[in-house]
Structure formats: structure tokens, C-alpha cells
Amino acid sequence: MMLLVQIADTAKQVADTVNRAAAQTAALPQQDDLRFGDLLVKGGWVMIPIGILAVLGLVIFFERYFTIRKAGKNESNLMVQVRENILNGRLESAVAICKNSNTPLGRMLQKGLLRIGRPIKEIEGAIENVGKLEVAKLEKNIGIIGIVAGIAPMFGFLGTIAGVIKIFYDISKTDNISMGVISGGLYVKMVTSAAGLFVGIVAYVCYHILNMMVDKVILKLETDAIEFIDLLEEPSK
């Protein structure tokens, strides 16, 4: 009988302990879910230059992308028309066609047509000079994207280091070295590093995409320029 009473008392104590624990858990404030927008705001002032770099890089990328894509469109029809007019002796018509095309290849061929009658080397030099100018126009501002790819991660690391310094400064002032204080501030400051790396990676990819597109256009212009010079040399063969 005594044993049954002890078991009943022990069961009652366990039940009371469980109830008190449940009541304390319910009394604790519910933590909000981690939101992406809140993290960006908590990243601090460093998120402002990182955001500016991201917008700048994207604007330049899309502007250059469509410009280079337009310059690299197929101009086989232009070459056919120029060839036909040259072989038929209609030089002025060929020049007008190149001028109306308003493309890098058209401007290169126009410069070469205006030099017809001079030595081939001089015509080649004129076309090459125009080609260099056209390539420089295509590459305009692409270097800025490369700069964004380089400095965006640096801004991110700067924000994280500044945050860590502030955390340890606060610890030295309050003498509170609890893991909650350290981790609570550190995970927020790591957001700047993540944002900087993300912007840097995207900018790096965009930079090389544009460079590959420019290289493709250069190869096409060189091929068409060689075809044009061969066309001018045909009567003298």
C-alpha cells in the first residue's frame, strides 16, 4: 500500500513538472520567421553601395547586350548587294547601301568603297581603323561591369568586418559574452558578405558573356572584311 502511495506521488510530481514546462514555453514570445527583406535592411549602410553596384551592372549589361546583339546580326544580304553593285560598276549605289545599313560592317565597307582606286594596303588600313573604332564602341562601359565584379564582394566583406568590430565593442562595454549576443549580431552582418558575393558573381558572369559576344562580332567583321578585300582584288587577277 505504501509503495502505491509513493508511485502516485511521483507521478503527480512528474505531471506538475511537465505542466510547468509547458506553461513556461507558452509564455515565451514567439519568434518571427526570418524574412529576406528584413535581413537586407539589417545589413546596414553597406547594402546601399552594394545595391547601387547591382543596379549599375544590370543596366550596363542589358544596354550593351542589345547593342552588341544588333551589331552581330547576319549581314550576308548586305555583302551580296555590295558585291553585285561593285561587279556591275555601280560604286555609288554600293556606298549608299552601306550608309543606309547603319551597322559596323556597313561603315567599314563604306570606308573601303570610298578608297577604291588607291592601293589595296591603304584600303585595308582604312577598313582596319574603322573596325577598331567600331569594336571600341561595342566594348564601351563593359569594363565597368568588371569593376563591379571586383569591388562588390569587397564591400560585402567590409560590412561584415565592421559588424564584427561593433559586436566585440558592445561586448567589451557590457561584459556580456553570451553566445546569443555574438551569434545574433554576426548572422545579420554576414548578410553583407553574401550580398556582395552574389552581386560579384552575377557581374563576373555578365562581364564574360559580353566579352564573348564582342569576340564573336570581331571574328565576323574580320571575315567579311577579308571577303571584301578579295572582291576588290578580283578584277586585277
Rank of each mutant, 00 (worst) to 15 (best):
A96W: 07
G200L: 10
L113R: 11
Q24F: 04
I147T: 15
G146R: 02
M47N: 03
G72N: 13
V130R: 11
I116C: 14
S193N: 06
R90Q: 15
K111E: 15
A194S: 13
G117R: 10
I147V: 14
T160G: 00
I68C: 03
M212W: 01
K42T: 01
A203D: 09
V95Y: 06
R64E: 00
A152Y: 03
G89Y: 07
F198Q: 02
K173M: 15
V95K: 15
R107F: 11
I7Y: 00
I226C: 06
Y65N: 04
L232V: 11
A27E: 13
M179D: 04
N88I: 00
K42C: 03
R90I: 02
I145L: 10
I218C: 05
L231A: 08
L210K: 03
D175M: 13
L3E: 10
A203W: 13
E84Q: 15
D224A: 14
S178I: 01
Y204N: 13
K70P: 04
I145S: 09
G112S: 12
I229Y: 10
I147L: 15
N74P: 02
A23L: 09
E84N: 15
F168V: 08
V205R: 07
D32S: 14
A22S: 12
N102P: 05
G51D: 03
T25I: 06
G146S: 05
Y169L: 12
L3C: 00
D32K: 14
R64P: 02
P49L: 06
G184T: 09
N102Y: 07
G196W: 03
E63Q: 11
N102T: 09
L3P: 00
A22K: 11
G43V: 05
E139C: 02
S93G: 09
V214M: 04
A21Q: 08
V148I: 12
V55R: 01
L56N: 04
A26R: 07
D230W: 01
A96T: 12
P119C: 13
Y169I: 08
M79H: 05
H208S: 02
T160I: 09
M108V: 11
G37Q: 07
L231Q: 08
L114V: 06
K220Q: 13
S183K: 01
R20G: 01
V205S: 12
E233Y: 00
I209R: 01
G51R: 00
L91S: 10
I142N: 05
F61E: 04
F198I: 15
S93V: 10
D38P: 00
L114G: 05
E227K: 11
I144E: 04
E122L: 15
I123Y: 11
G51P: 05
M190R: 00
N129H: 14
S193Y: 01
I52Q: 01
P29T: 03
I50D: 04
R115V: 02
L197I: 15
G44D: 08
I226V: 14
I144N: 07
A195W: 03
M154C: 09
